[in-house]
């Protein structure tokens, strides 16, 4: 899913970079208003968590394994704004320090794997929670459907980016079909893993799941720290 340099042309990459910058700016502003600068260490830890979780091998079938992308997981656990920022930082560090994902394609990767899961994915999660009963099963069903959507929407976004700035040769509709079909499968895996992880956190510390705060009767037993706004 990490798009390398050269798959999409320079003007489209730059435009994607501009769109991503706007999305990050909104997240910084909204995240700052909602959660304050003192949540920065927490967001850094969430980014480290997502990075490590991406290296965790989950069994898929008969000994083969896959891993998590984690965009929707982060959004459900810490909210869409911090989730988007955490994933953005993960992608930027991967591009700059690990050569994973092109530096010029960073905007594209941020849109597909940070902003779309956090906003489209979390939006669907929120809508599903409105419709479904306010129970653990409701939260998990919403998580699963939103995780699947976040991956497929990311693939669809890539198809659009490729149609705009791809290097021709393969027709955009072929790419669209291939990407979406493959990513429905990948999305099912992402949905299963995300749901299992959110379920595990709901069992041990339900108060830490941002997207299910309404399920917990009372707030977590840690008071506001003094002198931090």
């Amino acid at each position: 899913m990490h798009v390398p340099d050269g798959l999409v042309d320079a003007p489209t990459s730059l435009a994607a970079g501009a769109v991503a910058a706007v999305g990050i700016g909104v997240s910084l502003r909204r995240g700052g208003k909602e959660l304050s600068g003192s949540r920065i260490p927490l967001t850094g830890l969430v980014a480290a968590f997502v990075f490590s979780a991406q290296m965790l091998n989950f069994p898929v079938a008969s000994g083969t394994s896959g891993h998590l992308i984690g965009g929707l997981l982060a959004a459900v656990l810490v909210g869409p704004w911090l989730g988007a920022l955490a994933l953005t930082v993960v992608l930027a560090v991967q591009a700059l320090l690990f050569a994973d994902g092109g530096i010029s394609a960073l905007g594209i990767n941020v849109i597909n794997m940070a902003l779309i899961p956090a906003f489209a994915g979390y939006g669907l999660f929120w809508l599903a929670r409105l419709v479904l009963p306010r129970t653990r099963a409701g939260v998990l069903t919403s998580t699963a459907s939103a995780a699947l959507l976040s991956v497929v929407a990311g693939a669809a976004a890539f198809t659009i980016e490729y149609a705009l700035g791809g290097n021709g040769a393969v027709p955009a509709t072929t790419v669209a079909w291939a990407m979406v079909t493959v990513h429905v499968l990948i999305g099912c895996g992402e949905a299963a893993i995300t749901t299992l992880v959110v379920g595990a956190v709901l069992t041990t510390r339900p108060d830490l799941v941002y997207g299910a705060r309404d399920l917990v009767g009372r707030t977590r037993p840690v008071p506001e720290l003094q002198g931090l706004r």
Binding site: L45, F49, P59, A192, V201, T203, R205
Partner: peptide, 23 residues
């Protein structure tokens, strides 16, 4: 198999809780 992965998910879940608490 995927449906046997609950323990892996629990590992990831407790890792998140630890990260949050360290934060």
């Amino acid at each position: 198999w995927l449906w046997q992965g609950r323990a892996v998910a629990t590992t990831a879940g407790s890792m998140f809780v630890r990260c949050f608490e360290r934060g």
